[in-house]
Design a protein around this nucleic acid. Structure first.
Length: 290
DNA sequence: AACCGCCTCAACCGCAATTGC
DNA sequence: GGCAATTGCGGTTGAGGCGGT
């Protein structure tokens, strides 16, 4: 016996939402608040599945959404956060007030990737493109930009933007106070073709928010273990954040090579080249909280 | 004006994680 | 602890729009 579907597919609408559906959803959530997405459609008189309602609300209807183009500052923050979290869009979105994970994911795929290629940076590893990869990527980029220059109003802008934009810089500022094992980072840096630690780890000085008083969402689930082995390698391995709310100092080791999580204070992974101890992240977040 | 190719992004899908019993 | 229900996440898709020819 398999799992029952999240909704009855036969009697649900699909595709673009109508204004009326939007209004029904907004009205319902204004009155009853978010929650229980499964029962919401019926209660709100919508022929949609709960998942669809949730997505529509989170990605489009929520009143605190920012909308509009991403600023250069947001671009840089996304790049820095991506170098830190990888494709953990929800974590990245949690640090950009008014932006959704879906929006950031789309923006990354359509704009930032291209921007990074134009800077000679591999968007997955955030390291300089190797010569072989660089050739392929560059030609891909050239092809892309040919297309975009000739066809897309948006992308032609982003190309010229990319040319203007300075190399990845730390947005500055609050230091994570001894968060990185310098020797580990240095070791990594030394082994990576003369790139400085700062260039590799702009997040060392990363300001994790734009617009105070935004603070990172601190939850036990803030940094989750990978569901499965990530397809692309991050430039480092790291310990996940511990939870400030539960004062749970349990570390989570995301071992990219072995693809498992070690839920103990000690990381048994021999291949970790860079680690952010959970306690340091805990201190960082609690400092922000106080 | 019509067609074509490409880009964007809202929405979907499948699955993992979490929650509740 | 086991199971089912529910929620959340990340990858993918495709409709619609735009510019070029």
């Amino acid at each position: 016996m398999g799992r029952s579907p999240c909704c009855e597919k036969e009697h649900t609408n699909k595709g673009a939402w109508t204004k009326e559906e939007d209004q029904r959803l907004i009205a319902y959530i204004k009155t009853h608040g978010e929650g229980c997405w499964r029962s919401l459609p019926k209660a709100a008189g919508l022929l949609r599945c709960g998942k669809s309602c949730r997505l529509r609300w989170i990605n489009y209807l929520r009143p605190d959404l920012k909308r509009g183009n991403f600023t250069d500052e947001e671009d840089e923050l996304i790049i820095n956060l991506h170098s830190f979290f990888g494709n953990k869009w929800s974590l990245i979105a949690g640090r950009l007030p008014g932006r959704t994970d879906n929006e950031i994911k789309n923006y990354w795929n359509t704009h930032i990737k291209r921007k990074l290629y134009s800077r000679g940076i591999d968007p997955q590893t955030h390291r300089p493109l190797s010569s072989a990869a660089s050739t392929a990527a560059t030609s891909a980029t050239i092809n892309n930009s040919k297309r975009s220059n000739s066809t897309s109003k948006n992308t032609s802008n982003s190309e010229s933007e990319a040319a203007k934009t300075p190399p990845v810089q730390p947005l500055n500022t609050r230091n994570v106070n001894g968060n990185i094992k310098a020797d580990s980072a240095e070791e990594y840096s030394n082994s990576s073709s003369g790139v400085t630690t700062e260039e590799l780890y702009p997040q060392l000085n990363l300001e994790l928010s734009i617009g105070l008083p935004h603070r990172p969402q601190i939850q036990a689930t803030n940094v989750k273990e990978p569901k499965k082995q990530p397809q692309e390698q991050l430039p480092f391995q790291f310990f996940g954040a511990s939870s400030a709310s539960t004062k749970n100092h349990q570390s989570s080791c995301f071992c990219q090579n072995l693809g498992y999580q070690n839920k103990t204070q000690e990381c048994n992974c021999k291949s970790v080249t860079r680690m952010i101890p959970a306690d340091d992240l805990y201190r960082y977040y609690t400092a922000l909280d106080s």
